[in-house]
């Protein structure tokens, strides 16, 4: 009996020692991975991009019933308001017809003027349309995962929009998936312009539902309700994409609410906007200077 007890205790202490060794082995691995992230290595970002591809088939599969359920619920909830909504839509349709005629006239006029003045085309073509299949970041990052990757020619730092305005930019590109950093993320900075006055500023993400407008000139007049669009500075986003609306001004804190549906994103468009690389700019600059 005593021998068995001693042997049992020996086995237990061996198991405890093995467990302790395993803990420190895996903890060492975790600390090494964290150190890679902490010291700004690019390796984690690339590994993460391809890891997202692994989850894509399952996420797409799991997403289907959720989409069906959500659209079903929306349909059920909308039945009660259908008469009123129909009335509103008829009124709106009449107004939109008038707007369409005016817009078509302006497009033709604008195109003619562009040709006369030799102004380059500003229309940015879409590169890919993708569904949002995942969210990420937890409490610390605002990002979504879309089902378009390098196979659709998506690359890093491309602007992403929905039907209403700017959503964010691509950051981690895998074969079939891409992570999109939302404009509300803490690391997001978007050069913007006030539509009413033309003053430029920066829209800064705060990991909240709203953004903060910064670096606005002191003498500029800003009001609640002003619309804000991309300025095109910095070369990351094309100009004139709607970004948000000013919803609050408290001393120097200007609150900006995104116009895009960041809370209920389902489909987004990746834009094919690749401005000239900086080295080309620097090559052209001396030539222009020499010419003058």
């Amino acid at each position: 009996m005593r021998t068995t007890g001693v042997r049992g205790r020996g086995t237990l202490s061996k198991r405890v020692a093995r467990g302790r060794d395993a803990f420190w082995l895996y903890m060492g691995l975790a600390i090494a991975l964290y150190a890679l992230e902490l010291f700004g290595s690019g390796v984690p970002r690339q590994v993460r991009a391809y890891a997202n591809d692994l989850a894509t088939p399952v996420l797409t599969l799991l997403n289907e019933p959720i989409q069906i359920l959500q659209s079903g619920l929306e349909r059920v909830a909308g039945v009660g308001d259908i008469y009123l909504e129909n009335q509103e839509l008829r009124d709106e349709n009449g107004k939109l017809r008038q707007w369409r005629e005016a817009a078509q006239r302006l497009i033709v006029e604008n195109e003619r003027l562009r040709q006369i003045l030799k102004v380059p085309e500003r229309e940015v073509p879409p590169l890919a349309t993708a569904a949002v299949i995942g969210i990420g970041g937890g409490a610390f990052e605002r990002s979504v995962l879309i089902n378009a990757g390098s196979t659709e020619n998506v690359s890093g730092n491309l602007p992403v929009v929905d039907e209403l305005g700017l959503v964010g930019r691509t950051i981690e590109v895998g074969l079939m998936t891409t992570r999109v950093l939302l404009i509300t993320d803490l690391n997001s900075r978007v050069p913007i312009r006030l539509e009413r006055t033309g003053d430029v500023a920066i829209a800064e993400g705060l990991n909240e539902a709203f953004m903060r407008m910064r670096f606005l000139a002191v003498d500029s007049s800003v009001q609640v309700g002003d619309r804000v669009v991309t300025s095109g500075h910095g070369g990351l986003f094309p100009p004139d994409i709607p970004v948000g609306e000013i919803t609050g001004i408290v001393e120097d804190f200007i609150e900006l609410t995104p116009v895009s549906n960041l809370n209920t994103l389902d489909f987004v468009r990746v834009m094919d906007y690749r401005p000239l690389p900086p080295e080309l700019d620097s090559v052209q600059a001396p030539e222009q200077a020499g010419g003058q």
Binding site: A30, L33, Y34, E37, A51, A55, G136, G137, G138, E141
Partner: peptide
């Protein structure tokens, strides 16, 4: 979790 959620590598592991 770290890879899929986009959290810094190692945080969820720890």
């Amino acid at each position: 979790l770290d890879l899929w959620l986009g959290a810094p590598l190692g945080v969820n592991t720890v």
